[in-house]
Computed example of a mutant assay.
Amino acid sequence: MITLILTIHIILACCIICAVLLQKSEGGGLGIGGSGGSGGGFMTARGTANFMTKLTAFLGACFFLTSILLALLSTSNNSSSIVKEVEKSIEKNEPLKPSVPLGN
């Protein structure tokens, strides 16, 4: 289950990176670009920008959801953590009774 969600999480991360890089920036960096146009149609500059904004928001929400799911599943996992392993090794190395000098 964790492997499936982790795979989806990684794919979402790559999609978010692509969606952000495809958006038109104020400086015109790597954006989709295109010359101006009037109206708010789907494939005009404004329509594409609205679609990319909504797509990025949707991908971000899915990424946030998978992050929460992974955190919840990792805490409910019964595998021992590093802290528990260190505590076990300390308990093994501690003497059961305090050593008291017997020769006095």
Rank of each mutant, 00 (worst) to 15 (best):
residue 1 M to E: 08
residue 6 L to E: 01
residue 7 T to Q: 14
residue 8 I to M: 12
residue 10 I to Q: 08
residue 10 I to G: 04
residue 10 I to C: 11
residue 11 I to F: 06
residue 11 I to A: 05
residue 14 C to W: 04
residue 16 I to G: 02
residue 17 I to W: 09
residue 21 L to K: 09
residue 21 L to C: 13
residue 22 L to R: 06
residue 22 L to I: 13
residue 22 L to N: 05
residue 27 G to P: 01
residue 28 G to N: 06
residue 28 G to F: 05
residue 30 L to I: 14
residue 31 G to S: 13
residue 31 G to T: 04
residue 31 G to C: 04
residue 31 G to Y: 00
residue 40 G to V: 15
residue 40 G to E: 11
residue 42 F to G: 12
residue 45 A to Q: 10
residue 48 T to Q: 01
residue 51 F to W: 02
residue 53 T to K: 08
residue 53 T to A: 14
residue 54 K to P: 01
residue 55 L to F: 07
residue 56 T to E: 07
residue 59 L to W: 04
residue 59 L to Y: 02
residue 59 L to S: 01
residue 60 G to S: 07
residue 62 C to I: 10
residue 62 C to A: 12
residue 63 F to P: 00
residue 64 F to S: 11
residue 65 L to Q: 00
residue 65 L to E: 01
residue 66 T to A: 02
residue 67 S to P: 01
residue 67 S to Q: 02
residue 69 L to E: 07
residue 69 L to D: 05
residue 69 L to I: 06
residue 70 L to V: 07
residue 70 L to N: 03
residue 72 L to H: 07
residue 74 S to H: 08
residue 80 S to R: 05
residue 81 S to L: 10
residue 81 S to Y: 01
residue 83 V to G: 07
residue 85 E to C: 13
residue 87 E to W: 01
residue 88 K to W: 00
residue 89 S to R: 07
residue 95 P to F: 04
residue 95 P to S: 08
residue 96 L to A: 08
residue 96 L to T: 08
residue 96 L to N: 05
residue 99 S to M: 15
residue 99 S to C: 11
residue 101 P to I: 10
residue 102 L to I: 15
residue 102 L to Y: 06
residue 103 G to W: 10
